[in-house]
């Protein structure tokens, strides 16, 4: 898959989770998702320290076309939020796998990561 290197896995609803070396998990949306949404103009990010279960609604993205929910690929506590997106949501369009990340989680159950889709499995859905 283009644009990713490292330990990325996916939800079928187009979110990615990247397992970092420190054990945290970074979350974003796939290149396919940003392309389908079109120009992204607003993001509602989760509060720091908020907690999610796997597949809970964690953020909202608005493109010129419509609003879409972003689901958390894993359960955990939000330890960092990419606040740059609030002023420059277009970064999600230009760099969905790097600068366009949404938030970082401290996962509750690392086994949830293994249950996500591999890049190959995910790309078959697109």
């Amino acid at each position: 898959m283009n644009g990713i290197s490292g330990n990325y896995k996916f939800l079928a609803s187009h979110e990615w989770a990247k397992l970092e070396e420190d054990g945290s998990v970074t979350v974003g949306i796939s290149d396919y998702a940003q392309e389908q949404l079109g120009d992204i103009v607003f993001v509602e990010l989760p509060e720091l320290n908020s907690e999610f279960n796997q597949e809970d609604e964690a953020a909202v993205i608005e493109s010129v076309k419509a609003a879409s929910e972003v689901y958390s690929p894993m359960g955990g506590k939000v330890v960092e939020v990419n606040t740059i997106l609030e002023e420059s949501p277009e970064i999600i369009n230009s760099s969905p796998y790097q600068e366009g990340w949404f938030f970082k989680l401290k996962p509750v159950d690392i086994a949830e990561f293994d249950n996500l889709l591999s890049p190959e499995e995910y790309s078959e859905l697109c």
């Binding site: 079109g38 120009d39 103009v41 010129v64 076309k65 277009e90």
Partner: peptide, 9 residues
Amino acid sequence: PIHYGSQLK
């Protein structure tokens, strides 16, 4: 077409 690349541009 909704857009030819980017609606904003």
